[in-house]
Every structure is written in structure tokens, then in C-alpha cells.
Design a protein around this nucleic acid. Structure first.
Length: 552
RNA sequence: GCCCCCGUAGCUCAGCAGGAUAGAGCAACGGAUUCCUAAUCCGUAGGUCAGGCGUUCGAAUCGCCUCGGGGGCACCA
């Protein structure tokens, strides 16, 4: 919608230039925004102020020159205000036509081509398969998933991916933990090491192995048992992670195994390739990447003295692989505690010869879990941490997702379990859902009253004349821009704020105006508006992965 | 010591690529239901945008410094 306004202003500027009123060198960028106060107009632009310097005139004079040439059938009022803003009011017809389009688009309303079909990969969660997901992972999952949905809606060609760190020491610890528990369960007493995985789930895994294979591993040496235990535990945990995520409405397009990068020699090849380019050197028996050449604090080891490769090393191969698969933009979500990792990954991309801009790491800040204001302990060691599955089980998917998505992801989040499940005004998710249910209820009542609702009805939308109705319409029509902006800024919380604002307008309208009345034509027109609203709420919630109930 | 995030109303947070008089919810106080769902609505009160300097027509927003909170600085992942 704003692009249309932009064009109108653009045309006026050109006319002013032709007439010699304005020089326009350089031709200014036109920024269209919404005035602070809705009473001031529907749109405003600050071109007159930004041009003040190059035109060497006062903003107000320039604004008047521009305003003289602002002529368009859809414009109902042009005003100059404040320090030089040009405020525009559009005709009702302008909005109503666009409202019709929105309803016609239905589920697709909000879709844009801002992303131009660019192939984009969002990698998120990627938790080590050494234990169940906890709340922190939950936030990453919700944010990554919603971001993906938003990017898709904004016209990107999206894929999502979970990177499985199934190589390395932590896998050995995992296998060994399961093996030790296995022996314990079969009657041995032993010291369970502090640095192994102590959670209850390890015992469950050990028990499963007993159920399947009995005590056949009991008298075999460790080296013989470990590969089996490692793989069994990993597969089992991964299956759990996958089903927890599915329960949370997060489904990945691809699960990418780190091990596969070793199996097909990608890691070796990546090292060779970087060596050829001169980005790698040997020192102290280890192999280093010259990441300091690309704004990292220091160089990083990729092959240890022991000959083992670091996690960072396979990450290089992994990201090369992503690019080889044709992705033009890579987004990684990580916990904020990994922020030290950002410069070295950016360095890798640059060492490979790519612009830093194609790669973006999104840091998701911590979640503090509270219960009625009291902090819930989340120590992994003690095993009493709250898993994502527990939280989802307690508060429900909708509330959990909403809480993870309501705040800008670069601020710490207090997640209060009692608040999240409380069906009170303190809980915005129900406020929004309630609006949707309320609209559906109005439709049900209308149908019971004999109003036949279908798309082929004749709607006389000019019967919509209330200011509040147009406030809602303007808000509805802003949805595609909200999605675009949310995608561009990669800020997921914008959607929830938008929906809250949209829906509060409706609740106010509802309490002051009746939708269903004896006036059949007016009833239909208002139902049409509510249909558009219902579509917008649904589409917005869809981006957040939250359901829109028809009854509450 | 170095790096990242945060600091806006009593609390939790918005503030859109600098723009007009800084917003919302909760809590507090006062109201609204013969009628489409009161999980709702309307009103009142509440601010040195942590502090300072700078950039400019204009700063909560950009830059630098100080203070405060959180997190990180591995041949771990």
C-alpha cells in the first residue's frame, strides 16, 4: 500500500520538477510512514524536510510546491503540518477496494514478493543429541520456526535445517553414560563420573537396551560396546527431540548430520581448499585458520595436536556445503551464550570468498523460567531442569509459542508458567484468540438469523462509514507491510504486537457497534469487514504457529 | 582486561531505516452487561527515555564516554 503512495508522491515530484518549481538533484528517496496521530491523516512523508538542504529552501515552502502537484483520484486531502510533513488522506474507496482484494486473497493475504524468491536457509535449534530439549531450545525453536514462516510469506524460497552434532567427545560421553547405567541396572555398583550425563533419561535408554538385548553387553570390553551404546543413545534422543519439536509444531525440511561431512570427506576437502587459498597454517602441531585476517580476535584451531578436528572445523565444511546447495542467504539462530562464535564464522564465510552480508547469525537471549514469580532451577547436572516437553505439556503449545515470540529475541525473557497458562487478561494470547472466536461466533449468530454468507453476495461496502471501521481496515491493510518489515529486520515479535493492536481495535468496535441488525445490507458489509479481520488474525497467527479457535 | 545484549510509567515491554505532544498491557482508582461470547469495553492517574558529551533542521532511536544488570572470552560442543 505504501508503495502506491510512494508512486503518487513520486509523480508529484516529477511534475514539480518539470514546472521548474524544484531542482531535485539528487532525486530524493521517498519515505512514506503513518502519522503519529491517526487524525492527522492516513500517510505522511517527510520529503520536504530531507530535501531542505539540497533545494536550499525552507521545508514548508518545498512542501507547498509538492502539494500543488499532488493530484490523484484516491486522495481526499493533502495537508502540510508541523515542521514540513505532508499528510495525505485517502478516499474511502481507496481502502475498500484494497479490502476486497485482501478477502479475495484469503490465506494468501500478507504474501509479498519482497524476498524475490531468493533461496534462504534458516538453521536453528541444532542442539546436541545428548539430552532432551529444554526451555532455552524452545525459544530458539519458536523463533526460528516463526522466522521461517515469515520469510516464506515475504517471498523467500525458504528451507529450514537442524544440524546434528553427532561427532566428537560428547558423543563418547553419551555412549559411555548409557553403558555405565546399563551395568548399574544389571546389578553392578560403580562410580558414575561427574562429567558424564546424569539425567534420568540415560537410565531409560539403558533400560531399553536391556529390554531389547538383555545382558549380552555385560561381559564385553568397553571398546566393543561403546559404538552400539553411542548410536543407540543418539538415535533414541534424536527421536525424542524430533517428536518434541513436532509436538511444538516445528518441523524441519532437513536434518543434517555432522558425521556425513566426514563420511564424504567434505571436511578434508574444505581444509585442503582453504589451505590452497592460504588461509591455513600449522603451528605447535595444530592446524589453524587465519580468522584474524577477517576481524576475528585471534586465529582458531581447526585440527588439534591430537589430530582430532574441532567442531569449528566441520562447521566450515558445513557452511561450504550450504552454499554449494545454492543458498544465497544463510541464517543461523544461536543461543546468546555462543556469541563469541559469531566473528569466527563470519571470518570463515569471508575466507571462502563470500560477502559477509549473505550470512547472519541471530542470537536468541536467555529464558528464565518462573513459577508465580519464583525462579525455577534449570541445572542440567541435577537433572531437575524443565524440558521443553514439560513446559508445553503444562501451558499448551499456543501459549508457549506466544510467550517465546512476544518479545524481541535479543532481550532476556521471563517465562512465567502460571501467567502463560492463566486464561486472564494478563495473557495476550487468549485476548487475540478470543477476538477470533468472537468473530466466528458473530458469523454463527448471523447464519442462525438467516443471513446467507457466501462470496457471491452483493456487498455494498460504502455502507461502512464509521471511523472505527476504517481504523480497522487501515490496520488490516498494513499486514503485508508488517510481514515484510518483520522479515527484513528478522524480528519475529512484530507480528504479535501487530495482532494485539489490530484485535484491540476490534474489541472496542464490537462493544460500541452492532454487526448484526435489521439492516441486511449493512449487516453484510460489516460481516465482510469481520471476514477480512478474521483472515488477518488467522494468517498472523499462522506465522507464529498459533491456532485460531472458532470457539472458546 | 576485551567482546556481545539490555537499561523507557510501580511491574512486563513496544517505539517501525532519526521525525510531529514518548505508547500499550498489568497493577491502582472510577465506570459499563434487557442486545452478536464480560476471556470484553470506557475513563483517571502514572515519565529527567540510566547519566553525560557529540552528530543535525530534528535523537528514546546514530557515535563516543561513564554507571548498572546479564552473558561470553578453550587445541569443549
Amino acid at each position: 500500500m505504501k508503495t502506491e503512495i510512494k508512486k503518487i508522491i513520486h509523480d508529484a515530484l516529477e511534475k514539480a520538477q518539470e514546472a521548474g518549481d524544484l531542482e531535485l538533484s539528487p532525486f530524493p528517496d521517498i519515505v512514506v510512514e503513518n502519522p503519529k496521530d491517526e487524525k492527522m491523516g492516513d500517510f505522511s512523508t517527510n520529503v520536504a524536510m530531507t530535501m531542505a538542504k539540497s533545494e536550499r529552501k525552507k521545508p514548508k515552502i518545498i512542501a507547498e510546491s509538492v502539494a500543488r502537484y499532488l493530484k490523484n483520484g484516491d486522495l481526499s486531502l493533502v495537508e502540510i503540518a508541523g515542521p514540513g510533513f505532508i499528510n495525505l488522506k485517502m478516499s474511502n474507496k481507496f481502502f475498500l477496494e484494497r479490502l476486497k482484494n485482501a478477502v479475495q486473497q484469503g490465506d494468501d493475504f500478507g504474501q509479498s514478493d519482497a524476498g524475490q524468491g531468493i533461496k534462504i536457509l534458516v538453521e536453528f535449534v541444532s542442539a546436541n543429541p545428548t539430552g532432551p530439549l529444554h526451555v532455552g531450545h524452545g525459544r530458539g525453536a519458536a523463533v526460528g520456526d516463526a522466522l521461517g514462516r515469515i520469510l516464506k510469506k515475504a517471498g523467500y524460497d525458504l528451507s529450514t535445517e537442524y544440524y546434528i552434532n553427532d561427532v566428537g567427545n560428547q558423543m563418547n560421553f553419551l555412549g559411555r553414560s548409557a553403558w555405565l547405567r546399563y551395568r548399574e541396572l544389571l546389578g553392578e555398583t560403580l562410580d558414575f563420573p561427574e562429567d558424564h550425563y546424569r539425567g534420568e533419561y540415560i537410565k531409560d535408554i539403558a533400560q531399553l537396551i536391556i529390554d531389547q538385548s538383555g545382558d549380552e553387553f555385560l561381559n564385553k570390553p568397553e571398546e566393543e560396546c561403546l559404538p552400539f551404546f553411542r548410536k543407540f543413545a543418539k538415535d533414541n534422543i534424536l527421536k525424542g527431540i524430533e517428536s518434541d519439536l513436532a509436538e511444538f509444531r516445528v518441523n524441519f525440511d532437513n536434518w543434517f548430520s555432522e558425521e556425513s561431512l566426514y563420511d564424504d570427506n567434505s571436511v578434508e576437502k574444505a581444509i585442503e581448499w582453504l589451505k590452497d587459498k592460504g588461509h591455513i597454517y600449522e603451528k605447535d602441531g595444530a592446524v589453524w585458520l587465519k580468522s584474524s585476517a577477517f576481524d576475528d580476535d585471534k586465529d582458531r584451531v581447526i585440527v588439534k595436536q591430537s589430530g582430532e578436528k574441532t567442531y569449528f572445523c566441520s562447521d566450515i565444511a558445513y557452511h561450504q556445503n550450504k552454499i554449494n546447495r545454492g543458498f544465497k542467504k544463510l541464517i543461523n539462530l544461536m543461543g546468546a551464550d555462543h556469541h563469541g562464535y559469531v566473528p569466527r564464522m563470519e571470518a570463515v564465510l569471508q575466507a571462502m570468498g563470500y560477502d559477509k552480508k549473505i550470512f547472519k547469525i541471530l542470537l536468541v537471549q536467555f529464558v528464565s523460567l518462573l513459577r508465580a514469580g519464583e525462579t525455577v532451577s534449570m541445572s542440567t547436572r541435577s537433572g531437575e531442569f524443565e524440558t521443553l516437553a514439560d513446559v508445553v505439556n503444562e501451558v499448551g503449545v499456543d501459549a508457549a509459542r506466544y510467550y517465546f515470540l512476544m518479545r524481541s529475541s535479543d532481550t532476556h525473557l521471563d517465562f512465567d508458567l502460571e501467567l502463560a497458562k492463566a486464561e486472564t487478561p494478563e495473557n495476550p494470547v487468549f485476548y487475540i484468540q478470543y477476538a477470533h472466536a468472537r468473530i466466528c461466533s458473530i458469523f454463527r449468530t448471523a447464519e442462525e438469523g438467516g443471513v446467507v454468507w457466501n462470496q457471491s453476495n452483493e456487498f455494498d461496502l460504502t455502507l461502512l462509514t464509521e471511523d472505527e471501521e476504517f481504523a480497522i481496515i487501515r490496520s488490516i491493510l498494513a499486514f503485508p507491510e508488517v510481514v515484510e518489515k518483520s522479515a527484513r529486520a528478522m524480528e519475529v515479535h512484530r507480528i504479535s504486537h501487530y495482532l494485539l493492536d489490530l484485535v484491540s481495535r476490534f474489541h472496542g468496535y464490537y462493544s460500541r457497534h452492532r454487526v448484526i441488525s435489521d439492516d441486511k445490507a449493512l449487516t453484510l458489509a460489516r460481516l465482510f469487514l469481520l471476514d477480512a479481520l478474521r483472515i488477518t488474525i488467522r494468517n498472523g497467527f499462522e506465522l507464529m504457529g498459533i491456532s485460531s479457535p472458532e470457539k472458546m
